Simulated assay, not measured.
Amino acid sequence: MLIGNLIPIILLAIAFIVISILLTFIPVGLWISALAAGVNVGIFTLIGMRLRRVTPAKIVNPLIKAHKAGLNVTTAKLEAHYLAGGNVDKVINALIAAERAAIPLQFERAAAIDLAGRDVLQAVQMSVNPKVIETPIVSAVAKNGIELRVKARVTVRANLDRLVGGAGEETIIARVGEGIVTSIGSSQSHEQVLENPDMVSRTVLSKGLDSGTAFEILSIDIADVDVGKNIGAQLQTDQAEADKRIAQAKAEERRAMAVAREQEMVAYVQEMRAKVVEAESEVPRALSEALKEGKLGVMDYYNMQNIMADTSMRENIARTGNSQQDPNPKK
């Protein structure tokens, strides 16, 4: 009898557990919210999302939002974008913002922008409210050699058609900096740029710098211009210093070559003197050999000695005469 009374309780508990599991697996509350919002989402569709490991709330809530905004999107599109790794809620918000701003934007384009890693909602907002990009200080030199440091502000608007595959803000900044350098470099003087800074902005803006980027440049404004160094004078000074060092190096090279030639001449003279001494040392031996062989007589020898003595005497007399004519010879 006791067992008979427990059976209904056990069955009731089992039924409660089964219903709890079903309610946990099947988002009944989400299904009711969709029906109340007028969105036709079947209960089996929600079960299929669970089986495909898709969070139903991340599909149904954006779907309700899109339906209230009058957008024509389907559950299959949202679910496919979610499975591809996209942000469904941000895409729907971007489509709603674009529709309110009368900007033509299809779901496929918005989904592609989102999957490309760009913030599609921010892009739509930037299309409505343009963004100002401030460039770093750009250093440029006019033709008179004076450096100018320029800072510019670039007003850009997102181009939704080029967000996929278009270059980013870094490219815009680089192109604007290049245009500023070119424009100032073609100016005759820095004073001309200081008088008309808008000349630089007009020249840069006319170059079509937004080509191939994800933005459309609306205006380029010169925010600040400062005069820097006299680069031309500094380059001339550096060139003169370099020329001076080259001239010093060449002079040192010529001096070294002269010293080398002098040393070669001294060595040559010493070598000649050594040969003369060697030849003089051979004279007595040659005389001795000539006397022995009878090629030279004794009288011939004495006559040669007299001639040598006479020559030495004449040289001494000549030196004495020169010293008397110049009593204070230079040392």
Rank of each mutant, 00 (worst) to 15 (best):
K77R: 01
E169P: 04
A267L: 02
T311H: 01
R261M: 02
R162V: 07
Q263D: 05
G42N: 06
L115W: 07
V18M: 10
P284E: 15
Q125G: 12
G145W: 03
I26Q: 11
S187F: 03
A98Y: 12
H190A: 15
K330S: 12
E253H: 02
K330T: 14
V88H: 09
E99V: 07
G165K: 14
I103A: 02
G177Y: 06
A274W: 05
I217R: 05
K292S: 12
Q263K: 10
D119H: 10
M272Y: 13
E252T: 00
A98I: 13
A112E: 08
M257H: 13
I9N: 10
A123R: 13
A249V: 01
I133L: 15
Y301R: 06
E170K: 15
I307R: 10
L160D: 07
P284Y: 13
N93V: 00
D238W: 13
L218N: 12
N159T: 04
R175E: 03
T55V: 09
N40L: 00
I17R: 11
Q192F: 02
Q270M: 03
D310N: 13
T135D: 06
V200I: 10
K90P: 00
M265D: 04
D224A: 06
M313R: 11
G117K: 15
L296H: 00
K58M: 13
S127N: 15
L235P: 06
N230H: 00
A256F: 00
T320H: 03
K65M: 15
M308N: 06
E99M: 11
E79Y: 08
P136S: 12
M308H: 08
L115H: 11
A242G: 11
A258Q: 05
Q324K: 11
E241L: 15
L291N: 12
R202P: 06
L63A: 11
A97M: 12
G294M: 04
I32A: 15
I64T: 14
N87Y: 01
A97D: 14
G208V: 01
D210K: 04
Q192W: 05
V73Y: 04
A249S: 03
E195H: 04
V227P: 01
E241H: 07
A318F: 01
P284L: 14
P130H: 08
S139G: 06
D310Q: 14
N40A: 03
Q239M: 15
G145Q: 04
R53S: 14
G38P: 02
S219F: 02
R314K: 02
E289F: 06
G212E: 01
K90G: 04
V154A: 07
L218R: 13
L218A: 13
A13G: 14
K65Y: 11
W31R: 15
V150G: 06
T74H: 10
